[in-house]
Design a protein around this nucleic acid. Sequence first.
DNA 1: CGTTTCATGTAACAGTCGTTACATGAAACA
DNA 2: TGTTTCATGTAACGACTGTTACATGAAACG
Lengths: 193, 193
Amino acid sequence: MKQAYPPRAAVLLDATIEYMLKHGVADLSLRPLAAKIGSKARLLIYHFDSKESLVSEAMVVVRDRVQKAFAAMVENGRGHSESQIIRAFWRWATSRQHERYLRLFFEVHGLALQKPARYGGYLEGAVSTWVEMMAVVLPARLSLAKRRSLATLAVSTVVGLLMDYLSSGDKKRSSQALEIFAGNFDALLLKET
Amino acid sequence: MKQAYPPRAAVLLDATIEYMLKHGVADLSLRPLAAKIGSKARLLIYHFDSKESLVSEAMVVVRDRVQKAFAAMVENGRGHSESQIIRAFWRWATSRQHERYLRLFFEVHGLALQKPARYGGYLEGAVSTWVEMMAVVLPARLSLAKRRSLATLAVSTVVGLLMDYLSSGDKKRSSQALEIFAGNFDALLLKET
DNA sequence: CGTTTCATGTAACAGTCGTTACATGAAACA
DNA sequence: TGTTTCATGTAACGACTGTTACATGAAACG
């Protein structure tokens, strides 16, 4: 898992991810990318076959990183209320060092919505993975369908608020809105049958 | 307002919008676009000066259309509960004929997050306009800041759920999540001071 | 030592891009 | 009728794209 790539490819992939986090993927071009990371377009193709597969490999790594961060919060949140997980992820995602991950997510997600074929398989599971991760921490007495609906609401609310925050830069307003949601979420769970 | 453009330009702009709703903007290219709408790249530049301004003019029109639809729902919702406006907009946005507007929104929004300079001024007001439109229908007894926070929550929740729906295609699950939110929103307003 | 494997360097190919120069028709207006 | 304005047609420019062909060095392995 740690080193699924030949050593040279792994280095280039890491550098590419760093570059993508800075510049996005929409107008990513091999020559400027290669120049920035001290390589050549020739070599990126050599190691990854095509630009498309390079980008898609990079996105897999990026997605795994963020999902592992979320999974860690779920783990640390055992015993606490469900809303604490939401608050923890919000803090993680709105920290300066992690913002760029979300920006990249929103960009790729938007592109994938328009061209599902090109960003193949990215949408597949992009939503359901998050929903399922959230659903497992909800009270077991609730039906699976109910837990999925509630998890959908929680995930979508956080996602929507993150989009607001990234767009407006208004951390105060978006954080207050999240707090309203989080502050009512535990009670909402109690009400549900 | 109705015809701010010379007649020929207005026709091309409408056709361009239709094309953008179908193919997105990320890899929009003048020659394929022109070919599809029975024109030439030469003429698009002639009428709109540059590709960039053509796209940006088109997005202004698109944004106005959607915001007018929302404003109409706010108007029709006077006298009803606040959650009815949320439900009405959800129905509007998830209808087959309007989905493409949201897809385009998410794409452009994602691109704008990554390249704010290029999609200049699109992010400006992209969020605040929706929040303010929602805030005005909330109870006047609440402070402006409180209304903004609640409006932020409502708008972001709907946006997040729309993103889920567009990505997963799972109308049932996303609609159930929206209903949980809408069903609790009116009571939430009563609780707030 | 010889051979194979991994990595790299140099150039080029064929195509697309936004944009422009130059010229022409057609209609409106004086 | 002459002149101006709007719209269009043809071709090209220079820059950039992903990708490939061909050749070379360097290290690992038998």
